[in-house]
Structure formats: structure tokens, C-alpha cells
Write a protein that binds this DNA or RNA. Structure first.
Length: 426
DNA sequence: TCTGGGGTCCTAGGACCC
DNA sequence: TCTGGGGTCCTAGGACCC
């Protein structure tokens, strides 16, 4: 009798130090060297190589605070280059799809892959192959965790990151308690700062304890999400793989300013350009928005200045993807919440209540609408061909003094042939 | 001087209705 | 003059994720 088993198996594939790995692809000199990538505006550290982690540089640290360590240790610093990372992400995901079309792209550098169709005792080898193919085809190193549920595969992945092979499977292990015991409660997927505090107060310090806690207690004293997490630790799948890319429900565009902004005029310029950006984004996904939120705030870190933060949500009379309409509405909202005398650090907008623009004709549809649609289309096409904001609105400003800072950009654009790496035959 | 950006989901509480 | 219970829907804010 064959003993081949096909239990449920979910793999979590996670790119190692993804943004750093992307920069390294085009810059072999920085392999094995400490590297960090900064957030937009060169504000915070959002990706670190292992060497940088060893130096004690923390995730999310503001750059200026880590500068001493960085300079002393010759850490290589890069401003983030999202079009590069997005491009490489798509390549990684495309490669993963070859192993199974049942894939959930969870973030720019992570995907869940259903491996149930492979026999239990072969799944670790499959994982190894995925790793080496992704590395070979894209140059991006990954870690892979495999287990019966998403939460457990997250844990397996967490452990895999610390192993040399880069792959850990919990499939076929009868008693995973000794493994879960070593996983701190705050490292469990879905357990954040607040829940950690709550669990620790109740004597739960690791994943094993959460797994073995009574169901009634957790339901009574917490919420459905926690009990779902506990179930998943027991190997009972509660969080399904979301394989079809569902349409998003909101679209945010927000930025911190390179310099503090005090004038309404400058806020208007930034809000306008964020609106244009967001409108273009939803048009490219055939969506229309029902409402728009505008928000502005001063820095929460600078205690010597008064703090002010406010937002305003306005319902659009008719759901729309029309840039002009969206900008106009946003600017009225901005006027309502703007107050003189503050040093604004950040502004943003959110389009929400998004729905498909297909067949969204209504009583008020008219020839004018068709004209506007064509105008939007030609703006999008021109900007696509000649670069963002070739065509814009006057209110988006020309000088853009508030615009972001990107001092350390590698300026690599994989769409540009001049920056493609050349491969030399030996 | 300098502290990211973009998402989802859940819940409590208020408004409103019968 | 006093007094009820139950339901739905919406929203703001919080918590979490990367």
C-alpha cells in the first residue's frame, strides 16, 4: 500500500531583505557589505542587509539617528526606488506561478503558494527547487516556510530566515509544540503591540502557549481574530488563500514634505498632485470613487511646536474617476481644515468606496462625460509615454518646493535599457 | 534639521426606525 | 406624565499587516 500523503500544505515565500536585494542585483560591489534602503523622503530605514542588522540598525529607525553607525561602518545607503522593486516583484511572482497558479500575492515581497498537490514527503524538495529557480531567474534570494495553515507557514518562514538552507517545513512533524515554544508571542502573525501586551499580562509568552489556551477563554477575553490565530496554530485552517486579485476598496496617496510647509498655496499644490496621482491610479484599474478624504498634519515628533492634525471626508455627488472633479472637491475640503500658523509635515488624500467603472452610466451621463473620459485617457497616455506629470493641472504647481527628497537614489530603472546589467560569457 | 506609505478588517457607539 | 426593546446602518478610530 502506498503511504503517499496529500495533506493541506501552504508555502510562504518571502524575499530576503527585498529592497536591499534589488539594489544589490545591479551593484555587485555591495554584496556581503552592510546596506540599507531608506523610506520615501529618506526618512526611515525600511530594508537592511544582514550585515546592517548585525550592526544594530533597527527596522524603522529614522535615518538621522542611525547616521553615526552608518558612517562609522561604511554602510551603503539607498533612497527607495519603487518602480524597480515593483518590477522585480512581478518577476518573482511570475516565477512562483509556474509551480502553482493557486497563489496569493500577499505583499511586494511575499506570496502564499498552495503545495497540497505535492506529496507530503516531497514538499521540502519542492521548496528547495522553488528557492533555487527564483534565485536563478531573478537573482533574488528567498526564505520558504511550509505548513498546514498560513499562520504556521509564517512561523516556519520566520525560522527559515535564520537557517542556512533557507527552508523549513512543519509538514509531517507530529508534535510541533517544542518548535512553537521557541517562537515569541509577538512574532506570531496577527499579534501586534497591543495583543502582545494583553497576552503577556495573561501569562502567554510564546506561540505554544497561545496554541494550547482554551478556546472559550480567548473568545471571551479577546476577539475573533485572536481565536482564529490560535486555531491556525493548531493546524486548523481559518484564513483562506486569496488567489484571485480582488479589487481594492481604497486608494491613498500621501507624502511627507522635504521641508515643513506653512502656506495654504503649497498645501494646495501638493493635494492637487496627490489627487492627480490617485485618479490616474484608479483609472488604470477601471475604478471610480464615491468619496474623498483630505488630511494634513504637523510633525508628531517636534514637541517644541504645536501639533495639529485634521481630516475631512467629502462624498462626491456621483462616483467618479475624473481628475478635475476630484481635485476640485479635495481643494474645498482642504480650505475647511487648513489653519494658519502651523508647520505642516505631511498631507494626503484617500479615495474610498471604490467600485468598478464598467457600466457605471447613470441618469446624468452625457456627451460631456464622454469628452471628459477622452481627456482623461489622453492625459494618462501622454504621462505614460513621456513621464509622470508631463500633463498636469495648473494648481499642482511648478516649483514644488515641498516635493520629496531622494538623495541616495541608485537611479536604476529596469524599463531603461541603459541600466540593464550585461552578462558576460566566460 | 532630519521620524515612510499603503492597505484591510473589526468594533463600539451613535443615529434612526418601528 | 411616564416609560421599552430591538433592529439596522453608518462611521470613526484602532489594530494589524507589509
Amino acid at each position: 500500500m502506498s503511504s503517499t500523503q496529500y495533506t493541506k500544505k501552504i508555502a510562504l515565500i518571502d524575499c530576503n531583505s527585498f529592497y536591499v536585494s534589488c539594489e544589490r542585483l545591479f551593484n555587485p560591489k555591495i554584496r556581503n557589505k552592510p546596506v540599507v534602503v531608506l523610506s520615501s523622503n529618506d526618512g526611515c530605514i525600511i530594508s537592511r542587509s544582514n550585515e546592517a542588522k548585525t550592526l544594530g540598525i533597527k527596522m524603522g529607525d529614522p535615518y538621522f539617528k542611525a547616521k553615526d553607525i552608518i558612517l562609522k561602518n561604511n554602510v551603503h545607503v539607498f533612497s527607495s526606488n519603487y518602480s524597480l522593486y515593483g518590477d522585480l516583484s512581478r518577476r518573482v511572482m511570475r516565477t512562483l506561478k509556474r509551480f502553482n497558479s493557486e497563489i496569493e500575492i500577499y505583499s511586494i515581497d511575499e506570496a502564499f503558494l498552495d503545495l497540497t498537490n505535492f506529496p507530503d514527503d516531497e514538499v521540502e524538495d519542492v521548496g528547495k527547487e522553488i528557492r533555487s529557480i527564483v534565485l536563478q531567474w531573478t537573482g533574488i534570494p528567498t526564505s520558504i516556510g511550509i505548513a498546514k495553515t498560513k499562520t504556521l507557514s509564517k512561523i516556519a518562514n520566520h525560522i527559515a530566515k535564520k537557517t542556512k538552507s533557507g527552508i523549513v517545513s512543519l509538514i509531517g512533524i507530529k508534535d510541533i509544540d517544542p518548535i512553537l515554544k521557541k517562537v515569541e508571542i509577538n512574532d506570531v502573525w496577527g499579534v501586534g503591540k497591543q495583543l502582545t501586551k494583553f497576552f503577556v499580562q495573561n501569562g502567554i509568552h510564546n506561540a505554544k502557549q497561545l496554541k494550547n489556551i482554551s478556546n472559550t477563554w480567548i473568545k471571551k477575553s479577546s476577539n475573533v481574530l485572536s481565536s482564529r490565530t490560535a486555531m491556525e496554530l493548531r493546524g486548523i485552517s481559518c484564513i483562506a488563500l486569496e488567489t484571485q486579485n480582488s479589487k481594492r476598496k481604497s486608494c491613498v496617496v500621501s507624502r511627507s514634505f522635504a521641508k515643513k510647509v506653512e502656506k495654504l498655496q503649497e498645501l494646495q499644490e501638493s493635494i492637487t498632485s496627490y489627487c492627480l496621482n490617485a485618479a490616474e491610479k484608479i483609472r488604470s484599474e477601471s475604478l471610480i470613487a464615491k468619496s474623498i478624504t483630505i488630511f494634513i498634519r504637523t510633525s508628531p515628533f517636534q514637541n517644541q511646536f504645536a501639533y495639529y492634525s485634521n481630516s475631512k471626508t467629502i462624498d462626491l455627488p456621483i462616483a467618479t474617476d475624473n481628475s478635475i472633479e476630484i481635485v476640485k472637491t479635495a481643494l474645498t475640503g482642504l480650505k475647511d481644515i487648513f489653519k494658519n500658523g502651523y508647520r505642516y509635515q505631511k498631507a494626503g488624500i484617500m479615495l474610498s468606496g471604490l467600485s468598478s467603472s464598467q457600466g457605471s452610466k447613470n441618469l446624468f451621463s452625457s456627451i460631456k462625460d464622454v469628452k471628459i473620459k477622452n481627456l482623461m485617457k489622453s492625459i494618462d497616455n501622454t504621462n505614460y509615454r513621456f513621464g509622470r506629470s508631463t500633463l498636469s493641472l495648473a494648481s499642482a504647481g511648478i516649483n514644488k518646493k515641498w516635493n520629496i527628497k531622494r538623495q541616495y537614489s541608485s537611479k536604476i530603472d529596469t524599463a531603461d535599457f541603459n541600466f540593464l546589467p550585461t552578462i558576460k560569457a566566460i
